[in-house]
Design a protein around this nucleic acid. Structure first.
Lengths: 210, 210, 210, 210
DNA sequence: GATTAAGCGAGACGGTACGTCACGTCTTCCG
DNA sequence: CGGAAGACGTGACGTACCGTCTCGCTTAATC
C-alpha cells in the first residue's frame, strides 16, 4: 500500500503497540519532510501509517506531540557532539551546526513545532523532551569539559550559557528579522563567548586562531 | 450594544473605514486580554466590534495580523527607553523590563503571536512591524549612545548585540525550559554584556557597582 | 459532478438556503432509496449533495431528522386519499394501500426511521410531522365523512380508530412476526372495522359486497 | 469489585461458560435499567460483568441480542395470564397490563429493543423469541378459551386478533403520538373487542358490566 | 499429579461516523 | 453603494462504539 506500512509487513510478529508507534512515527516524519507541520494532520498520519486515529490518540496527547516525537528522533541523530579540544572551538562549532540546522528545511519544521508548543502545553512537554533535553545534555557535557579545563566561567549557570548561545538563533529563526548564515552564526558565537570564557579560555582560542 | 461599539457612537462623522479599524482593534485588544490569541477569533472580533467579517478581511490579511496590530498598539506605550547614564545600566534595565513583560500575561499573548507568525507569513510582517521595529529602534539608540561613550564594542553588529541580549528571553518565553525571573534576567544581562562591553564600559559598570 | 448537484446548477439565482435544503433532501432521498437509512449518513449526504456537514447541521438537528424530512416528502405524494363512497370502502382501501407501502422497499426505510425516532427525540418530532401528521389528517377526513353519513361509531375517538386500523400493520412491519400481504390487510381491516362501524355502516358495506 | 461479579464469586466451580453468560446478563440487565439500551454498550457490559468482549461475542451475535435476552428474562416473569372468566375480561385485562408495561420505564427499553431489531436481523430473532413468543402463547391460550366458550369469532385468525389488540399500543409506544393511559387502553380494548367478540361474547361482557 | 489445550480476561486495534469549530469567501439586503 | 449580517464550503478536530484480534494466564480434562 504505502512505504511506511511495508516496512512493518516484514515483522508481523512484533507487538502491536510497537508496530503502531513506529508506523505512525515513520509516516509523520515523511509528512513533515514533505509539507511541514501543517501537512502532518492526524487524518493524514492515520491514512499514511494505516494506524487508526483512535489508536494514535491512545499513544499521544495531540497531533503536535506526535510530530515532536517523530521529528525529535530524526534530529537526535543529526547533531553530533563536537570535540575540538577547546571550549571556544566546541561551542563555536555547535552554534554553527545548530544555525545550519535552523536554516535548513528541517529548521522550518522545528520552528513550527516550537510555535505549536506555545499553544499546546502537552506538546510543549514533548518538545522539551525530544529536542531540548538532548541538546541540553550535549551543551552540559561541553560546558563541563570547559569547566574542567578552566576555559569557561564557573560563575555562569550552564542554562544561562546555553540560552545566550542559542537563544539568538532561535530568535532569528522565528521572526526572520535577521539572517541565519554561517557568518552571522560566527559573529554571534564570537560575541557571546567573549562573555562566557575565562581568560584562559580566550587564550586557548587565540592560540588556535579562532 | 457593547462597549467597543459605544465608543464609536460618539464620533459618527469619522470616515467609516477609520471607525471600523478602530472598533476592530479595540475589540481584538479586549479579547486578547481576556482569553489570549485563541479567543480572538475573527467571528468573535466581528461580533464584538460590530464590523463584519468581510470588512475585517479588507483591512487585514489574516486573523493573526489583526491581533498583531491590536497588541502592538498596546505594547508601544508600555516599554520606555531607559537612560541610566551607562551602557551597562541601560541594557541591564532593558533586559529586566523585557523579561518582566514576557513573564506577564501580555507576554503570553506575545508568545502566541510570535508562534502564529511562524505559520502565517503575512502576520509575520505585521509582527515585525509592530513589535520588533519599535524595540530595535530603542536598542539601536542605546547602542549608539554606548558607542559614542566608547562603552560598547564597535566591532559588534547591533543586530547581534540585540539578539544576544533578548534572544535568551525569547527562548525561555517560548519553551518554558527555564524561568523568567528578575534574577535570571540579571544573570543573562551580566553574562551577555560581558561580551558586548568594552573595557571602558566594564569600568563604568564596576564604578556604578552593577 | 453528481446528479443532485447538477439539478441546482441550472438555478444559481435561487436563495442559498433553499438550494442547500433541496440539494440535501434530494441526495438523502437517493441514498435512502439505494441503501436504506444506514446509507444516509451525514458524511454521505454531504458528499452527494455538495452541502457541507456544518450547513446540514444548521438546518436539521440530526441525521434522522434529515432522513425523515426527505422521506416524508416522497411519501406525501404517494398515498392518495381514497373516496369510495362508504366508510368501509374508504378505510379498507386505505389499510390496503398502507399495507402495500409497508411491504415495499420504502416500507423498510419507514420502519428504520420509526426505529430511529425511538432513540432520537428530535427526530421523533420530525417523524411525527412528516409522516403521521399527513396520515392523521387523511384519516380524520375519512372518519368525519363516516360520521356525517352515520356509518362510523361516534363514540370512538378518531385516534383510537386510527390506531386500531394501522397499529397492526406497524406492529407487523417492525417485528416481522406475521406477513403484510393484501389478504392479511383485508382480514385486519375486516376485523377492525367490525368494531368501528355502526349498523348503518355495516349495511352499506354489505350492500357493496365488501 | 462489582455486584454482578460478586454473585459468581461464591460458585467458583461452575463451568465458566455458564458463569460468563449469567454474569453478562445480570450486568446488561442492570445497565438497561439504569440507562436504557444506549447504556448497554458492549464495552460497558464487558467492564461491568468482568467478561471479555471476545467471550460475549462467542455467546451472542450482537449487542442487541445480549440486551434482548437480558431484558426478556426479566420480562418473562412480569406478565401473568389473566383468567377472569370471560374473553372480554381476559383481553381487556391483558391490554391494560401491556399498556401499563409499555408506559413504564421498562416499556422504554422494550421500545428501544424493538427499534434496534429493525436494523439488526440477528437481534430481531432474539426479540421475537424472548418477547413475542411468550406473549403470543398467552394470547393464544386466552383466544382458545374464548373459542371454547363461543365468545370470540372463530373466523378471525388469532394473529389478527392479537395485532388488533396490541398493535395500537405498540404504535403509540413507538411514536408517542397519543398517550398510553389506562383510559386509552380501555377505549382501545373496547373498540377492538367489539370486532372480535361474538354476540355471545358481547352478552357475557354486558352481563359483567364491562 | 503433571500436562496440555481450550477458555477466558484484558484491552489494543482498524474502521466508520459522529457533531463541532474556525477559517476565509460569498451573497443578500439594508441604510 | 458600502458595509453588516451571516450562510456557506472546507478541512480538521477529538470521541464513541463497533466487532476483531492478539496476548498470556487460568483452568479443566486428559494422560
Amino acid at each position: 500500500m504505502n512505504p511506511d506500512q511495508q516496512i512493518e509487513a516484514n515483522r508481523p510478529q512484533r507487538p502491536r503497540s510497537v508496530r503502531a508507534r513506529e508506523s505512525v512515527l515513520a509516516a509523520t516524519d515523511a509528512l513533515l519532510a514533505a509539507g511541514g507541520l501543517a501537512a502532518a494532520t492526524i487524518d493524514a498520519i492515520s491514512a499514511r501509517s494505516g494506524v487508526s486515529k483512535a489508536t494514535i490518540y491512545k499513544h499521544w496527547p495531540s497531533r503536535t506531540a506526535v510530530a515532536a516525537e517523530a521529528f525529535g528522533l530524526r534530529m537526535a541523530s543529526t547533531l553530533p557532539l563536537p570535540d575540538t579540544g577547546s571550549a571556544r572551538g566546541d561551542f563555536g562549532a555547535q552554534v554553527r551546526l545548530v544555525s545550519e540546522f535552523y536554516a535548513s528545511p528541517a529548521g522550518t519544521v522545528f520552528a513550527q513545532l516550537l510555535a505549536a508548543s506555545v499553544t499546546d502545553p502537552e506538546a510543549a512537554t514533548f518538545f522539551r523532551t525530544f529536542f531540548l533535553a538532548g541538546r541540553r545534555q550535549a551543551i552540559a557535557t561541553m560546558w563541563q569539559r570547559g569547566l574542567d579545563r578552566g576555559e569557561v566561567d564557573a560563575g555562569i549557570d550552564v542554562e544561562v550559557a546555553q540560552d545566550i548561545l542559542f537563544g539568538p538563533l532561535i530568535f532569528r529563526l522565528l521572526t526572520g528579522h535577521a539572517p541565519l548564515t554561517v557568518e552571522q552564526a560566527d559573529q554571534i558565537a564570537d560575541a557571546a563567548l567573549r562573555g562566557l570564557l575565562t581568560d584562559a579560555g580566550r587564550a586557548v582560542a587565540a592560540r588556535d586562531q579562532l
